[in-house]
Structures are given as structure tokens and as C-alpha cells.
Simulated assay, not measured.
Amino acid sequence: MNERYETGLIIRAARREDGGDLTLMANLPGVRHGTARLPFTTQSAIEGRLEAPGVNLLVAELEGTVVAQAFLMQQSGRRSHVGYTGIYVHDDHTGQGIGTKLIEALLDLADNWLGLRRMELTVNVDNADAVKLYERFGFEREGTKRGDILRDGAFVDCHMMARLKDAPSFV
């Protein structure tokens, strides 16, 4: 299913032919800065993720070019009610509402198709825009992993965030 917006943005499932656009995006300085990605990600590594079992990959396409990616991995066993997610947006397309459209699509998938009750993610503490976006959709900070990611020779803390849907009472 493709979701088209008045801006011409299309949210759809990732395809193998998106590998080039996704590789370009993964290697951008802004994307790398805001994620745990290493520099010099290869296209074959990206294409391997496109076919990984249990991973739902969505892309945002604008004028025929992929400008953002989101993933949702459903956990297994006694954690099958949990999904782990993340988003990244092309450096030239941040602040345009693309992340908002992707998180809406991810949460629709999680809530209405997979029946997930808990969505988890980690986000660098200095990525204020991403933290704000996730909080708008009901994600709450559950803790901070100190020195979690090595970036440009320095360790960066990450927030663990989660969104609970129709949470049962806990023992």
C-alpha cells in the first residue's frame, strides 16, 4: 500500500531498487551524526537489510527519489508484542514533516496490522528534534544509556524510549 500526500510525498514499502538512494542517505553526515551508523556503508549491506526476515522497511519518496527510511522489527517469543523502530531522513529534507509521516505509518502498522502493544527505540540525547517528534507520538523516556555510541571520537548518551498502547496493569 502506498500513501500519497498533498506534497507529492509517497510512503511505501522499500524495494530492492531503492538500494542506491538508501546507501547515499546512510552515508550523509547528518544521518550518520544522528544514528549509530558507521561511515562508508556499502550498497550490498543496505540491500541485505532490504531482504532481512522480520524487518518492515518503509521509505518516503519525493519526486522519484527516496528521502527517508523507517524500520520496524517485531520481536519474538515472549516479546512478540514489542516492536523496535528507527527513522532517518536525508540531510536536505529534515524539518519538512517527513519523519512525522513515517512515524504515523509505522504506528499504523504496529497498532492495526501487527497488534503490537509496545514500541521501543533509542535516540541520541543531543538529537532534540527526534526526541520531540517521538514524544509527540506518545513515546516516553525510560532511561539513558551512558556512553552508548562512539561518534567522532567521543561517547554519546542515548535515551531509551517506548510507547505503550493499551498497556495492561503490571505486576
Rank of each mutant, 00 (worst) to 15 (best):
K132Q: 14
G115Q: 04
R4P: 07
G95C: 08
L38I: 15
V66D: 00
N127F: 03
G64M: 00
A14V: 04
K165S: 03
G30Y: 02
L62G: 08
M119A: 15
N27A: 04
E142Q: 11
T144Q: 14
V66G: 00
A154Y: 10
A105C: 02
M73D: 13
R136A: 09
F137R: 08
I103H: 06
N112T: 06
L50P: 00
G19Q: 02
R4F: 14
G138C: 06
L106I: 08
A128M: 13
L62E: 06
C158G: 08
V125D: 01
Y84N: 14
E6V: 05
T100Y: 15
M160H: 11
G86R: 08
A68W: 03
V131I: 07
L114Y: 09
Y5V: 08
L102H: 03
R15Q: 09
Q96V: 07
P168F: 01
D166F: 04
I103T: 03
Q96C: 08
I10E: 02
G20M: 11
H81D: 04
L121M: 07
R15S: 02
E104F: 01
T65W: 12
N127A: 05
Y84K: 10
L38H: 12
G143H: 13
K101Y: 06
A68D: 00
A52F: 12
D108M: 09
Y88M: 12
P53I: 00
P39Y: 04
V89D: 03
P39W: 01
D18E: 01
D18V: 02
A154N: 07
A130W: 09
N27C: 01
D108S: 10
D91K: 08
L133N: 05
L62A: 07
L121G: 05
G83V: 09
I10C: 00
P29S: 10
L57C: 10
A154V: 09
T94I: 10
M25L: 02
L9C: 06
T41A: 07
Y84T: 11
A162P: 06
I46G: 00
E51L: 00
T122K: 09
L28V: 06
R15F: 04
R163H: 10
A68Y: 01
V89T: 04
D157F: 09
C158W: 10
H159F: 15
D91P: 05
G147C: 04
L24T: 07
L57V: 12
V171W: 08
V89F: 01
F155L: 10
N2P: 09
L114H: 06
K101S: 05
V82M: 14
E51N: 02
R16P: 08
V55N: 11
T122H: 11
L28F: 03
R118A: 14
L50C: 02
D91R: 11
V82D: 09
G138L: 07
G138R: 05
Y134L: 14
T85R: 12
L58W: 00
V55H: 07
E3F: 14
N124C: 15
G20D: 14
A70Q: 01
R117Q: 13
G138P: 07
F137H: 15
G147S: 05
P53Q: 05
A45L: 14
Q96E: 12
C158Q: 11
F139K: 10
V59H: 01
V171Q: 13
V59Y: 02
G115I: 07
E47G: 01
Q75P: 08
A52W: 11
